[in-house]
């Protein structure tokens, strides 16, 4: 019996060593990097996505959201239904390689360049969260990145800012009306998931349900209100989807650059382009893919191309921006809200 007692005491004290060590090699507060639960690659990225034509897609409903990519006249759409379960799709389009990253907890979709310092990599889901937001890791160097910060926060790539590609987030009905000839990612993902179900319950609409804590709580808008954040070097400004209850084009200035923010709540999109040589821009309704026109008759498509008019075939420059839940944008940045 004495031996048992001794062993028990030995185990009690032997196992309670404190293995918390100071961390100095992170750009973000180390203690706020949280283990989401599934582990590294426990949420599997899709590394060989398969596509069908728009007309062959039957699993999407009109109000389902998709994220669209454009390059060299080719367009592809990635349904939220799939991104909710995989969070990262490593893909190529024409001559570019990117990772379509999507965080279901912050509602942020951003296309990341997979070529870093001339070397092509792929990104995986690290299973870690910062401010309840996805932290991809790059498989070439095992460095950890922050999706909304857009930089590497730990590892050999630390401090590196990721290049991004423009995307458009909108509903399936808007997308297929605007781009009926595009390719759409299908359900052959290499994993078996119930893509018809949303894995986070009422999370999208329950404003008080924020699963993991964030470092800064900004409650000026409802937490889950979807909004576009435009990312000037100094100024971060947010445009809520509610501003576009009626289709609308907003002219604004961000750090000296004049931009046009065009949106539609009914069509469920918000995009931001540099104004360039456009004159006064007004939104147009129900003429997809055209979403706006200027007083010179330039017709602007959803992807920023000038379809017709004096500037025909000019591609507007996308202003660095992405859509997310307001609480998440406010957690990362001190944002101005466009009133």
């Amino acid at each position: 019996m004495k031996n048992l007692l001794f062993l028990t005491i030995l185990l009690l004290f032997g196992c309670n060593k404190d293995d918390n060590q100071a961390q100095t090699d992170w750009l973000i507060p180390f203690d706020e990097v949280l283990d989401g639960g599934p582990g590294k690659d426990g949420i599997p990225s899709v590394d060989a996505p398969q596509f069908d034509n728009v007309s062959d897609i039957s699993f999407l409903n009109d109000n389902d959201l998709v994220i669209g990519m454009f390059h060299n006249g080719v367009s592809k759409a990635y349904p939220h239904q799939i991104l909710d379960w995989h969070e990262i799709v490593n893909d190529d389009l024409s001559d570019i390689s990117y990772a379509l990253t999507y965080c279901p907890l912050t509602g942020t979709g951003i296309a990341w360049d997979r070529v870093i310092d001339g070397s092509k990599t792929s990104f995986g889901v690290s299973g870690k969260l910062y401010n309840t937001n996805l932290m991809p890791y790059d498989r070439a160097t095992d460095s950890y990145w922050s999706q909304i910060r857009l930089d590497c926060v730990n590892g050999t790539q630390i401090n590196k800012v990721i290049n991004t590609y423009p995307i458009i987030e909108t509903t399936w009905s808007t997308w297929k009306a605007a781009y009926p000839n595009s390719e759409v990612m299908n359900l052959t993902t290499g994993s078996n998931r119930n893509y018809g179900s949303y894995p986070y319950g009422d999370y999208r609409t329950n404003h008080s349900n924020i699963i993991f804590p964030v470092s800064n709580t900004d409650d000026r808008l409802p937490a889950k209100e979807r909004a576009l954040i435009v990312m000037g070097d100094q100024t971060k400004k947010v445009y809520s989807i509610e501003l576009f209850a009626e289709d609308r084009a907003i002219e604004d200035t961000i750090d000296g650059t004049t931009i046009i923010v065009i949106g539609s709540k009914s069509k469920n999109f918000i995009v931001a382009y540099e104004k360039g040589n456009l004159t006064e821009v007004v939104a147009v309704t129900d003429q997809l893919p055209t979403i706006a026109t200027d007083t010179n008759g330039n017709r602007i498509n959803l992807d920023g191309t000038i379809e017709s008019g004096p500037l025909q075939d000019v591609q507007l420059t996308t202003f660095n921006s992405f859509i997310g839940y307001f609480f998440a944008l406010g957690a990362f940045y001190e944002v101005e809200i466009y009133e």
Binding site: T8, L11, L12, C15, P38, G39, K40, D41, G42, G124
Partner: peptide
């Protein structure tokens, strides 16, 4: 009752385990 618990979580990219009181 005094328990000790060991757990292991493995994925294709990492192996984690813990043991403690």
């Amino acid at each position: 009752i005094v328990p000790f618990v060991h757990q292991s979580r493995n994925t294709i990219s990492e192996q984690q385990s813990s043991f403690g009181i």
